[in-house]
Amino acid sequence: MTTTTLSKPPAWLRPAVLDRAEQVAIVLLWIVLASRVELSGNPWAPLLLISETAVAVFTLIRRPTDKLSMDLGDWLLAMTATCAGLLVLPGVALVPALIPLGVFLAVAGNLIQAWAKLVLRRSFGVAPANRGVKISGPYRFVRHPMYAGYALVHLAVMILMFHPMNIVIYAIGWWAQILRLLAEERLLAQDADYAAYMQTVRWRLIPGLF
């Protein structure tokens, strides 16, 4: 009789190791962004740093989990979507008359993100994972309010800190973000509580549209 032994994945492919690698990458990119903001001379650049600092902080304090997607495609999408915001270039405000709108969008987007992150607390993550189902606060209105907040901040950046490269960066970032969102829901839908939540809150990102 032969016994089949399931081989263990290599150490670098274990969820705990990938979790730490993700944290290191986010912190390093945040340091690069912080130095870029400091040198930009754009008075509105700190509004961008507020948003991305929250991402870095919550990535560091989140709780570990074994319910983490091990699909390489999911990881690439998650890192692309997250890194896009950390790679933007603080440019200039092309239309001064739109500055109040840009400031409003930046403040609103950061507040929505903060609300969502405070509800998630240590359940926050970058790669698709189940760190606990949260359905209170802004999650009563859309299933991914944090991403909605990101969208508002990114619009604000285009108004207050326009740079041609940011168009490319955000286009790639949001392509990855939407696919990442769908990957997250495929994983979370395996949880009965989240499956029921999806039936209650219909819209993922924008009420009435998506």
Rank of each mutant, 00 (worst) to 15 (best):
V55Q: 00
V55K: 00
F58D: 01
I61H: 12
I61M: 08
R63D: 10
P64G: 02
P64F: 03
K67A: 11
L68Y: 08
M70P: 00
L72Y: 01
L72K: 12
L76F: 09
L77R: 13
A78G: 15
M79G: 04
T80N: 14
T80I: 10
T82W: 01
C83Y: 11
A84E: 05
A84L: 05
L86P: 05
L86T: 07
L87A: 15
L89V: 13
P90C: 09
P90N: 11
P90L: 11
P90Q: 09
V92R: 15
V95H: 08
A97F: 06
A97G: 10
I99E: 14
P100D: 13
P100H: 13
A106S: 13
A106W: 04
A106R: 04
V107P: 11
A108D: 04
A108L: 09
N110H: 12
N110C: 14
N110Y: 10
L111F: 13
I112D: 08
Q113F: 03
Q113Y: 05
Q113V: 10
Q113L: 11
A114S: 12
A114R: 06
W115R: 12
A116K: 02
A116G: 08
K117A: 08
V119W: 05
R122Y: 11
S123L: 00
G125Y: 01
G125R: 02
V126N: 06
V126C: 05
P128C: 06
A129L: 01
A129V: 01
R131M: 03
R131I: 13
